[in-house]
Design a protein around this nucleic acid. Structure first.
Lengths: 146, 146
DNA sequence: CCGGTATAGTTTAACTTTAAATCGTATCGT
DNA sequence: ACGATACGATTTAAAGTTAAACTATACCGG
């Protein structure tokens, strides 16, 4: 071990716990996606469209924190499964607006409910007040920058 | 939107904040790795060896939550850069023990200090007590299961 | 209208990741 | 000792990811 001030040890310790909690919870939540054979990115795209309505690819990329090149591929794969449809915007022909198909809507409705239930189950380790508190602390942490 | 109980909304909300905080903090911390041209997995391996001493590949895989097949490749790449060395265990020839080289030790010593500083900077958004609190809440969350 | 510039999306190359099949080695029960 | 089984590591194939180069479209100033 090195010679770091106490505050650094505490920071490191908290950071590690934060990361472990995030990993551990997500990895359990994401198990729900294996049955419908969705990747995490695919789920992210479907969920974004489900909750925000039709979006262009750039907005989707920003929402799920992936590159636009990657979104092209993810949308390709979702389109092959008839879960979404690309539609060229006639106002500005550079844009493609991505819509959920009926099949896509049905799938994400079901899968999102499962994910939601899984998250509720995971968070039930904490009381209502603890959840509020955790949420506030996380918010404070996330705000800092980029 | 669906018809979920209030507790589910709260859970979802807290979950989202937890994930955003984790992503946002790690993405900033990981910027430190671009200069030494280390991938996150490579850093994870070096750091594990740095703090735990020589380990076999399976243990490394468990530590950084990657598949053993992946570890084979990550170690290959680190070995090409002369940062680690494989050594066959003579007690049980199935095991390869991975050691840091001197170059590897030097590199990770420097890089880990940078990462540590970056983490300390990030966590400084929270007071000492808030960090303790966050750590405890995260611990509670992570414990639940596998 | 025209030329420059910006933007949305696609393509490509390089790399990481995983799951599954495989190889070699060790262990256990008989 | 033998066969079954388990285990560590490697290989392979398929997929996801990014950065960078590229295409097509739009906008803006003159």
């Amino acid at each position: 071990m090195e010679f770091a001030p106490k505050s650094t040890y505490r920071a490191l310790n908290t950071y590690t716990k934060l990361m472990r909690a995030a990993e551990s919870v997500t990895s359990r939540v994401h198990r729900v996606l294996s049955a419908p054979k969705l990747t995490i990115s695919q789920f992210g795209v479907l969920e974004a469209l489900f909750h925000k309505g039709p979006l262009c690819q750039k907005d989707i990329a920003a929402k799920i924190l992936k590159s636009t090149g990657n979104i092209t591929l993810v949308i390709d794969n979702l389109e092959k499964q008839y879960l979404v449809r690309r539609k060229r915007d006639n106002e500005d022909r550079r844009f493609l607006t991505i819509h959920l198909t009926e099949a896509g809507t049905n799938l994400i409705t079901k899968v999102f409910a499962d994910v939601e239930a899984s998250i509720a189950f995971e968070m039930a380790s904490l009381t209502e007040d603890e959840q509020e508190l955790l949420g506030n602390l996380c918010k404070k942490l996330g705000l800092k920058g980029g």
